[in-house]
């Protein structure tokens, strides 16, 4: 019996930005809605945050020829095969599931935030109230029970689909051929191939917050290959994990971001 390696395909050209997925995710995962402000955009919360694992990004884009497009992109965990977060996680909270996705044992998370620094897609988020990292696990419990991830199930237009890895890659490329122009497949060519693929209408660099060439930071490769085995020898990995989190903190501010939204949560 082979492992059913899965891919979720996000076809941005079919998305109507109805945000069914954004809300369905919160409903199933029992994440609260937090207070936000109207900041001149339909996109809210403005970014992924601890209670928001899937977010529709809205972007008004005018091509050089004057053609206008309103781009919608569902943002969230890409479930990398070569996942920096799993590599860097000192406690084993982040792990690869049998579906190839990246799962999260919340109980094991020590809140060290190493994954935040490591993730090339800026996905994991920290909840200061619980001192835990939160992110999409592609509804691991639903997958185990033969149910679609809640985002995929809620999607009205077929913008979100899930299936066997090889089938979804074929599907993505055939869709791109059909679309022509600058349409492209995003995800299968880096970080070992992601388990979330995009069909993009425009070149990747056009999209906000979408790295053109994502890769696992070198420091993390070093961590994984020779430091992590060491750290796991330490009790619970806590102390060492925190230490290395400090070392590899990098340019990202992992502590702020969500703070503004903490007040008034329901």
């Amino acid at each position: 019996m082979s492992k059913p390696e899965l891919i979720k395909l996000i076809d941005t050209t079919l998305c109507t930005a109805c945000r069914g997925c954004q809300v369905a995710c919160k409903q199933w995962n029992e994440m609260p809605g937090l207070r936000t402000k109207q900041w001149g955009s339909y996109q809210n919360p403005p970014d992924l945050q601890w209670n928001t694992w899937t977010l529709i990004r809205f972007q008004e884009y005018e091509a050089s020829n004057g053609d206008f497009k309103w781009l919608f992109r569902k943002d969230g965990c890409m479930h990398c095969a070569d996942a920096a977060c799993v590599k860097v996680c000192p406690s084993g909270a982040l792990y690869h599931t049998e579906f190839g996705t990246v799962g999260l044992h919340s109980s094991l998370c020590i809140g060290c935030k190493a994954c935040i620094a490591a993730c090339p897609f800026d996905t994991p988020r920290y909840n200061p109230q619980t001192d835990k990292i939160l992110k999409c696990d592609l509804c691991y419990d639903r997958l185990k029970n033969d149910e679609l991830p809640t985002c995929v199930k809620s999607c009205p237009t077929g913008a979100l689909t899930i299936g066997r890895k090889e089938d979804m890659i074929t599907k993505a490329y055939s869709r791109v051929r059909e679309l022509g122009g600058d349409a492209n497949v995003y995800g299968d060519k880096f970080v070992g191939g992601t388990h979330v693929l995009y069909v993009l209408d425009e070149k990747p660099e056009v999209y906000d917050k979408l790295p053109e060439k994502p890769r696992v930071p070198l420091t993390i490769i070093a961590w994984k290959d020779w430091l992590k085995p060491l750290s796991l020898l330490a009790a619970g990995g806590v102390i060492v994990g925190s230490f290395f989190h400090y070392i590899i903190h990098g340019p990202k501010d992992t502590s702020g971001g969500d703070q503004a939204n903490q007040g008034g949560g329901e």
């Binding site: 919160k26 409903q27 809605g33 937090l34 207070r35 936000t36 109207q38 001149g40 809210n44």
Partner: peptide, 24 residues
């Protein structure tokens, strides 16, 4: 999409209010 009519049902719902919080 995120609200319904006067918002009399949807403004009381945190998930929907979070997505569309305020008059614009």
């Amino acid at each position: 999409t995120e609200h319904w009519c006067t918002g009399a049902l949807t403004r009381w719902q945190a998930w929907l209010l979070e997505a569309m919080p305020e008059l614009y």
